[in-house]
């Protein structure tokens, strides 16, 4: 009966997508535009050409990783929204590692830098997991606060202690140098971050679906009492999912540094973390579905430029569509199980 469950998920998600697009069409119609033209541009801007597809996949890469930051702890019953902060911490950790490891051969140095980023992000969100388990602090509020603390600490660091005074446009950290930047996947304009993202999602999926550890996490998420009864190490599981989730978002920060910016600055704070929450919910916390949904969302973001150029729509138009999509999907959650004749599948 897994096929029926899949069909139900697909049908409900598609209905929510259509509802969100419908309301969005209403908004653009208010501005005197033909909704159908705008839909066509959304598709063209996200997936219409090789160039737009490259842009879409580049946008999707960090979102896949930040989505894991919400999706992984969610399996253990936690609602973590700390992807934005973990990404920032990961980016800063990567830069710090980069300027200290510059003497090493580039492949080794880059690997260590990414590891530093993942470690930074993992420890950052892990704090929320530890507070949750040992002090009973609500993890959602804690990670929300940690986001703001991370951004403030980064602003502090790039404004003084690690500032590169050669950068005059806006405060930025020391650069890691051209030598330590990773390039693009051969024959494409997409950076290697996409591979990291897809691999991380697949590995997480295997871990969650096909190992005993993953099953234990699901038991904790499904029923803490039952997990206690069978003697599962709840503290270790809570800690592990938050650290791994944070590590994924930290890796997103590392990739933004080694593949896109080359330094840490407020350009890291562009909402990838919040987009990740949306993707995790849209994918119903399933790591494989995260890949597809992140590409869809990357496409919406990538088409923002075209909407702006062709119709004069504000760049926030894509944000409106994302918000509508999120609301529609959450509301659609209530539909699950209503269309099945028997509950025992």
């Amino acid at each position: 009966m897994r096929g029926a469950a899949w069909a139900e998920t697909a049908a409900i998600s598609a209905a929510a997508l259509l509802a969100a697009l419908g309301v969005f069409g209403g908004f653009v119609a208010l501005r005197g535009l033909n909704p159908l033209d705008v839909y066509a541009a959304l598709v063209a801007g996200g997936f219409g050409s090789w160039f737009s597809l490259e842009e879409t996949l580049t946008q999707a890469a960090p979102i896949m990783l930040t989505a894991l930051c919400t999706a992984l702890p969610a399996r253990a019953g936690l609602l973590v929204i700390g992807g934005e902060g973990a990404l920032v911490v990961g980016g800063v950790a990567t830069v710090l590692a980069g300027v200290n490891l510059g003497g090493l051969p580039p492949p080794l140095a880059v690997a260590l830098m990414c590891l530093a980023g993942a470690l930074g992000g993992g420890l950052w969100v892990g704090v929320a997991g530890a507070l949750r388990h040992w002090r009973g602090v609500n993890e959602t509020i804690a990670t929300l606060l940690l986001n703001y603390i991370a951004i403030a600490v980064m602003n502090h660091l790039v404004a003084g202690p690690i500032r590169d005074f050669g950068q005059v446009l806006k405060p930025a950290s020391w650069a890691i140098g051209e030598r330590l930047m990773i390039g693009t996947i051969p024959a494409t304009g997409i950076h290697w971050g996409l591979v990291f993202g897809v691999v991380a999602c697949v590995v997480t999926w295997v871990l969650m679906r096909h190992t005993i550890v993953g099953f234990a996490v699901d038991v904790v998420g499904g029923n803490v009492r039952a997990a206690q009864m069978v003697g599962l190490p709840i503290g270790a599981i809570v800690l592990a999912t938050t650290v791994l989730g944070g590590a994924a978002a930290g890796l997103a920060g590392a990739i933004e540094v080694v593949a896109v910016h080359g330094f840490a600055s407020s350009s890291l704070v562009v909402g990838y973390g919040y987009a990740g929450i949306l993707v995790a919910f849209l994918a119903r916390q399933n790591p494989l579905a995260v890949i597809a949904v992140a590409v869809l969302l990357g496409g919406i973001t990538a088409s923002g430029g075209l909407l702006q150029r062709r119709f004069g729509l504000p760049d926030a138009a894509t944000l409106v569509l994302e918000g509508l999509l999120f609301i529609a999907l959450l509301a659609a959650n209530t539909l699950y199980g209503r269309f099945r004749r028997s509950s025992g599948d």
Binding site: F281, L319, L330
Partner: peptide, 21 residues
């Protein structure tokens, strides 16, 4: 079966986006 915290995050995105729009 709708989580109020998740709805809040959705409205946070939507409200900010709509205001800019």
């Amino acid at each position: 079966r709708v989580n109020d915290i998740a709805v809040g995050i959705a409205l946070f995105l939507f409200g900010t986006g709509l205001a800019f729009f």
